[in-house]
Design a protein around this nucleic acid. Structure first.
Length: 333
DNA sequence: CATCGATGTTGAG
DNA sequence: TCAACCTCGATGG
């Protein structure tokens, strides 16, 4: 259920906790037994996300490609070290609160200090789910057992001496050669967190402005731009005050560039906070409400029939290519 | 307890 | 265009 921001967070979590270590791989459910056997015991070399796809390299030129699809999820348990760029950037974002950021909670739960201190690393007692924009600690879990007992359908379990990652319900989970990875990457449009800002923007602009396909469909096309899903699509279009049905070639170049830059901005915020926060101009109080409750985070997504937050017109919902598209017919005329 | 729907993609027809 | 994939939180009885 993730859009691009979640996948980047997961890739970083894998990088932080698995890269540089030998990894035991298994498929408790059995549906990925062959693939798991191929990487079992190998050292993880690299972990990266491009759009909604994640690639993890293992020693011996074997790559794991995972796509979570609609309801895939990774559960991390054990000793979990947060990505320092995420933790550090939270301060910059000014979104700490009394109980601490999710990342700080992870550090606490995982006993992160012990990793860098002299004492023996102590077994963690944290558990996090990384599926969508939530990163929750379940402190009621009994983690006295190691490795943790398998619960439910686990397609792939990655395990080090200290950290466990369980993958459930992915659309794609395959082992690839470097050539196959290159082919997968070649199908993907630019990702603001992967591609050079200028190159990415130019590719996006060129692609959008040469087609009559409606911009509302183009933003969902992963070969046009990577990582945008149904929520970010609706919100980017509203933020640009753009009618979703506008053919790509009829969107002004300035507006196309504005959308790319806005996506870059929203993606960065999503990676840092773990939430799809697409509203701005909020007071401190409104921001706290929005951080706590999803329905307050968006301009139009999920608000069919409710008044537009800007003009009061009823937000419209229509089906487009099998997905629900929300927009304000007045603001986005 | 049953049912529904979801932040997604693929492939059949 | 639509079903299938295969998971789980939210909702209703």
């Amino acid at each position: 259920m993730p859009e691009g921001h979640s996948v980047h967070r997961i890739a970083r979590q894998i990088a932080q906790n698995f890269v540089g270590r030998p990894v035991s791989a298994s498929s408790p459910q059995g549906r990925f037994a062959e693939g798991a056997a191929l990487i079992d015991g190998r050292e993880a070399i690299e972990s990266r996300a491009v759009g909604k796809q994640m690639f993890v390299a293992f020693d011996g030129d074997l790559w794991l490609r995972v796509h979570l699809g609609l309801y895939g999820a990774w559960d991390f348990s054990g000793e979990i070290v947060s990505d320092p760029t995420i933790a550090a950037s939270n301060g910059r974002m000014g979104q700490t609160n009394q109980r601490g950021t999710p990342e700080e909670a992870i550090l606490d739960a995982a006993g992160e200090n012990s990793l860098t201190s002299i004492g023996a690393p102590r077994r963690a007692r944290g558990r996090v789910r990384m599926s969508e924009q939530t990163t929750d600690i379940n402190e009621t879990d009994d983690l006295s057992q190691w490795p943790p007992p398998v619960r439910g359908q686990v397609r792939l379990r990655l395990l080090t001496e200290r950290t466990c990652a369980d993958l459930r319900g992915p659309t794609a989970c395959v082992i690839q050669t470097p050539d196959e990875v290159a082919q997968s990457l070649a199908k993907l449009g630019p990702d603001p967190l992967v591609d050079n800002a200028r190159d990415g923007e130019e590719r996006f602009v060129a692609r959008v402005r040469r087609t009559v396909t409606p911009i509302g469909l183009l933003l969902m096309d992963q070969s046009v731009v990577s990582g945008i899903g149904n929520v970010y699509r609706a919100e980017l279009l509203f933020r640009a005050r753009l009618n979703p049905h506008t053919p790509g070639r009829e969107v002004s170049e300035e507006t196309v560039r504005e959308i790319w830059r806005d996506w870059s901005r929203l993606l960065l915020i999503g990676v840092e906070t773990g939430q799809m926060m697409t509203r701005d101009g909020l007071t401190a109080k409104e921001r706290r409400t929005a951080m706590a409750r999803r329905e307050h985070r968006h301009w139009v997504y999920g608000r069919a029939g409710l008044p537009c937050r800007v003009c009061g017109t009823s937000v419209v919902m229509e089906e487009a290519a099998g997905r629900k598209l929300y927009w304000c017919p007045s603001c986005q005329a």
